[in-house]
Structures are given as structure tokens and as C-alpha cells.
Design a protein around this nucleic acid. Structure first.
Lengths: 204, 204, 204, 204
DNA sequence: CTTTAAGCGAGACGGTACGTCTAGTCTTGTT
DNA sequence: AACAAGACTAGACGTACCGTCTCGCTTAAAG
């Protein structure tokens, strides 16, 4: 999303409603058309906005879709389910739910693909998507420490936090989008067991 | 790749060299341009071939890139490193190496993205890419059983084999392409420890 | 008009019918819309042809309109009316008729205007439009000489031929498009008298 | 040009300087860009003025350019050269000089072209441009009458005045802009001879 | 000396057309 | 037949201008 009414106040201010309409139209178009057939002209039409208005606010398809995707990742929260094991299973199931939504699955991989050869997009992706997910892992670990389930680290973030994040996010994405198998309660339970037991044994 | 000189024998046979030239040109173009800016016309020009020749053999960009990608995954092998732990670390590092190659990283995510809304492509992806990776996991498990490191299952494939595959492939892909961190010997060692210890504790 | 089936013969040749359809559509659009609102996209649609086909054959609006205009100037002929005076009056009236046609009046001045800062267009204009008009003046003079109405020059073209052409064409265009007065039989007669008497007295 | 500080008196009056700046910027832009690439936004920028200020004063490109053109035609005067023949040659040379200026040649034909399908513009053109030229012809004729070179008409304006004007203006414009030949002293002399001798013989 | 109505610079807006590019097909003549 | 070449239809691309509008500020005549 862009900064509205920046520093100076000269000229007509940008319509705040347009941003929301464009992002909503983008999500809608993603579901119907997928990444490669989504066009900014079509998004503009759906949003009831001129094509130029879209181009004035976003520099291209990748940036727009990244921001539309970010609004979906805002749904992620971490309800306290009472134990570390339950919290991890909750996060796994919740992330899997998000990936089952057509707009998410279509867009996420496409944006990652574009980001492989676009540093600016990689930056945007990290700030708006990855950070939102990582927050959950960090929060879950903090809770487990306050419950006494795992020792409080001297160093924070702990040494394994990145590994944990890549394993959780990677495994869920891979099962959902590549293996195309459902992430159900059973899988979540088996996965959580391997992860937590492995971390415990490895001293993480 | 397509079947050359199929059943019928009338007319000029398809040039076998053209296939190789087109796939090589596709890999080259992927590195230079990325998925979204790669065009079949450009591939044809690079391959020194008419556009019609490309379209006669592949139905579209996704299929062509999938096949070009498959030639890269053919590099994957599983040298016997003497122990299960070493074999897993070897597979992790080898897969990471493959993903560091520009053509691979660019193409893999893009093909997965397209596959989310294209069943035929999903099928092709599983046959030509995923199967090649999974083979390594299955082979590694068989070796560990013959070494006596893990018990021989009654059921084959074992119950956790899919989970193991998703965890390994998912974590490596995520760390490489999303977190953009290197998969080095240290990370591979830590990851393998968590995975194997977790599986042992969970009874996998 | 472009050269079709140039030197080389590889590839599909350009459709000759398309040229005619595009030029006809251009004339039609000129009448309805005028120069400034005529768009090449609209011309393509009217001609039942893709926009790229137009751009492949003409480099821009000016060139296309010039060629469309040229087809109108092809109408000009010089019927033998028996005397120099009658021939001049005939040419004046015929040229005026041509300028009364909506497509002509709209396009001619616009092309001249563009040509003032485009040497290539100026060249094209001279070859395709001006030459067609000048031919009539030269032919009329040749006829008058064969009738013995004016002496046969030693030098050919005669010294005044350019002046005569500019006076005839200029006066008719100016009266029609700037003064917006009709060029009727009376005006043609008065104009012809002044021109021929003036030339006779001045020794042209 | 528009009326400043009109009848009503409330509110901030229009800046007189802006008019001059805009017209100057228009002439400048005409020279650099020509008619078809001249944009009002660019004119506004050159004039150091907001686009709205231009649109508040002129209804469109045609009107603005017509007015800018009119300021150039204000240069035309008719110094008394002592005889009808010398006066006509003077007018011809002076008009040709004006047409050699880049801004004039570019704009005049373009405005005439637009005027062919815009009655209001045709009116403006006649008032601001054509009238300025015609004045010279009328004045020259009046002078010749007072010198006794031609008889004073009972009717005024005389019957041939329009024809004379179209012949002079048309021939000079055509030679300059279509034939792209210079109007030098020799051509002016030959042209004047034909015109005046023709008029004398024809009884004009 | 305050209204108050218009002018002003800035710039976003809904549109339209631009000229280019790509997809995928079709039409040549050649191999 | 398959091939190289390249024209073809269809339509998206991102840019530039159009002419309008919405702002907040300035300017001077009217009250």
C-alpha cells in the first residue's frame, strides 16, 4: 500500500477507497484467473477505477499481487491453545487453511517465482508476507517459555528459530502445493511430533 | 519430451537435435529472462528453429519449461555416504545446490504456481520432477534398512515416507527461495539432526 | 502502398486485399472523424484487420493518410475540351470538386501541416499527390502547344510551369478551404481569364 | 486572447502576464514539436502555469494555436513602395517571409485542417488571421486608386478583390509549403506581372 | 477590514489511444 | 510430412495526454 497525502498537501489527494477496491479486485481476479492471466487492466475494471490509477500506485503486477496477498496473511493469528504442542498444531492447520484458499495458493508461488530474479520484490515479500508468518513462530516460542515448556534463552531470538520457521512453512507449503495432499489433523499431529521431539533431542 | 517418429512413417521425420536445442535454449532463456518474460518465440530463435517447430512438440510454455526443468533434476543422484545421517545431509546439500542454479530456482516455483490451477501440468510436474526427488528418499530409506539403521517395514512404503519427503524438500526450498539463506553444512547438519531424532522419538 | 512479396520469397506473403481494405477504411474514417480523431486502431477494426497488420505496412498515421489521399487524387484526369481556356477551367473545376469531398479537404491540409516538419513525409507527399496534379498542368500545356495556342518551347518544361501550377492549385485550395467560398463556373472563368491573359501579357 | 477582468468584478482577476507567457510558450512548442505533438500540458509547463489556467482561457488546442498564430500575423504591414506593382511584390515577399518562420508554417496548415470540420474555428480563423491579411490587399488597392493607377470603383469592395486575395495568398502558401520552393524577388516579380497584367487585360 | 468570489499551482481522476509485444495459427515454398 | 520464414488475428502491455475535478492558498474588489 502507498502512502497517501504524503508530506506536501498540494494537489488532489489520492482516494483511500481506491486502494481497498483495487486490492479486493486483485484477490477476486486471482481466484478466477490465476496469476498468469490476471491483467492490471482487468483489475482496474473490476475495481471501478482507471488503469492509470492502478499504475500510479503500484509499479507492476508483482507488487500489486504481493500487497493483495499480504491482506490475506493478515488473517493469521495465534490463539493460545494451552500447550506448545497444541499451539504448533494450530499454526500448522491455520497456515494450511490459508493455503487452501484459491487466491493464496495461486499467488504465493508466483510471487516467490518472480522474486527469484527481482531483489526489490524479494524485499517486499519478506516485509509483507514472511514477517507476518515468522511473528507467529516467535510468539509461540515466547509463550512456551513463559509456560516453562522450554528454557528461556539467553540469546533471543534462539539459534534454531529460523530452522523451525523454514521447516514448518516449507513442509506445509510443499505438502499442500506440490504433493497436493491435505494437511489434516492427523498429518499436523505427526508433523508436530517429529518437529518437537527432534528439537528436544537435538537440544533446540 | 515428445515421441519422435511415432507410429506412422510418412513424411519427414522430426529432427532429434531440435528437441535438445530447444530445451537448452529454454534453460538459457530462463536464466536471462525469468519465467514471465520468457517467450516461445524467443526460445525458437535461440534454438535456431521456427516457432511452429516448438508448438508442434509442446503445447505451451508450462510444459516446455517443465521438461527443461526435468533435465536439470536428472543431475540428482544419491552416492552412498555410509550412514543414514550422512546420506540425508548429502541429499539436502545436493538439492540445495540444484536450487542455487538460476534456471532451477526461477523455473521451479513458476511451474508450481501454474500447476495450482492446471491439473495436467500438476500431473506432468509429479511425473517428471517430484518423482525424481522422491526416488532419492525411498532409496535412502532402503539403504538404511539394509544397513540395519532402521527396522524393515512390513508395509512399504512406510507410513512416514511422504511426511519425510515434504519436510526435506519443503524446508530446503523455503530456506533457499523464501528466506534466501544459504543451505550450508551447518544448517544441513542441524536440520538432519532434528529430522532423524524426531522420527526416532516419534517411532518413524 | 508497400512493396509486397519483396525480393526474398520465404514466408507467407502479405495479403494484397488487406492494403485495399485498409485504405478504404482510412478514407471512410477521415470523412466521419477528421484527421485528428482518426486512430489507426479504429482503421484496423473498420478494415477487418489487426492493428499490427496496419503497423507492419505503414509507419504512422501521416503515411497512411497520404496514401489514402493519393487514391483520391487518382480520380483527376484531363478531358480534352477543345481549347486551352476550356481545359484550364476544366482542371480548376475538377480540382475544386475533389476538394469538396469531405475526405480530401480534411486530409490534405493535415498532411501538408505534418509535412512541414517531416522531410520523409514531404517527399512522399510530392511523389504521390503533387506529381499527380502537376501532370495535368504539363499535359494541358502540351495540348495547347499542339493546337498552336501557345508557342512550343525550346526548353521543356517551360520557365513558368511551376508558377502556373502554384497559382492554380494554391488559388483553388485557398478559396475552397480558407475563404470557404465555392469554386463555381463564374469564378473559374474569371480566374482563368486573369491567369491566361496575365501569362500572355507577361510572355509566358 | 480572452477578456480580462470582464464585466463582473468580484474575485481575483486573471493574470495578464499569463496570457502572454502561454502564447509565447505555444509558439515555442510549435517550432519544436509541430502541431500533432504539441500538448496543452506541455505548453502549461513551459509557460510556468498550471494546466487549469490554460483550459480556463482557451477551450482547446485549435483555439490556442490560432491565437498564437494571430500574434505572428500582426507583424504584417504594408509600407508604401510608391507603385502598385512594388506594393504587390512587397506584400508577396513579406507574406513569404512570415511563412518561412517555423512556427507559422507548422501552425497555419494545421489550423486550416482542423477548421475544415469545425465551424467555430473557421470563424475564429477568418477573424484573427484571414482578416489581417485581407486588410493589406484592400489597403493596397485603395492606395493604387489614390495614385490613379486603377480607377476608383463605384462598388466597394470591387468585384475581383476576393479573387485577388485568394490568388496571392494561395499561390504564396502553395509555393512555400507544398512545392517547397523559395519565394524570392524573381518569383515575386514574375508572379506580380502575371497577376497585374491579367487583371488589367481582364478589366479588373 | 472583513467577507467573498474568482484565480491559481498541484496533482489525482476516468478515459482513450498509442505503438510494441506475445500468443498461437496459418500460409507459403523448400527439404 | 516436417521444416524456416514470416504474415496473420487477438488482445495485454505500460505510457502519454486528454479534459475534469478537488484541494488549499492567494488576490483584490465589495461590503
Amino acid at each position: 500500500m502507498q502512502s497517501h497525502t504524503p508530506a506536501g498537501r498540494a494537489g488532489r489527494p489520492r482516494s483511500a477507497a481506491a486502494d481497498a477496491a483495487i486490492l479486493a479486485a486483485t484477490r477476486e481476479a486471482l481466484v478466477e484467473l490465476g496469476w498468469s492471466k490476471l491483467t492490471l487492466g482487468d483489475v482496474a475494471t473490476r475495481a471501478g477505477v482507471a488503469k492509470t490509477t492502478v499504475y500510479r500506485r503500484w509499479t507492476g503486477k508483482s507488487e500489486l499481487v504481493t500487497d493483495a496477498l499480504a491482506t490475506l496473511f493478515d488473517q493469521l493469528v495465534l490463539p493460545d491453545r494451552g500447550s506448545l504442542r497444541a499451539d504448533v498444531e494450530g499454526v500448522v492447520l491455520q497456515f494450511a487453511d490459508l493455503l487452501e484458499q484459491p487466491a493464496t495458493k495461486t499467488a504465493l508461488m508466483a510471487v516467490v517465482a518472480e522474486a527469484t530474479h527481482d531483489e526489490a520484490l524479494r524485499q517486499r515479500l519478506r516485509e509483507k508476507i514472511v514477517a507476518r508468518q515468522k511473528r507467529l513462530v516467535v510468539e509461540g516460542r515466547r509463550r512456551a517459555q513463559s509456560r516453562g515448556e522450554i528454557p528461556a534463552d539467553v540469546t533471543d531470538p534462539g539459534p534454531q528459530i529460523d530452522l523451525i520457521f523454514d521447516v514448518i512453512a516449507g513442509a506445509v507449503v510443499h505438502r499442500t502445493l506440490v504433493s497436493c495432499e491435505p494437511v489434516d489433523a492427523d498429518w499436523a499431529s505427526r508433523f508436530t511430533a517429529v518437529l518437537l521431539d527432534g528439537l528436544a533431542a537435538a537440544g533446540g
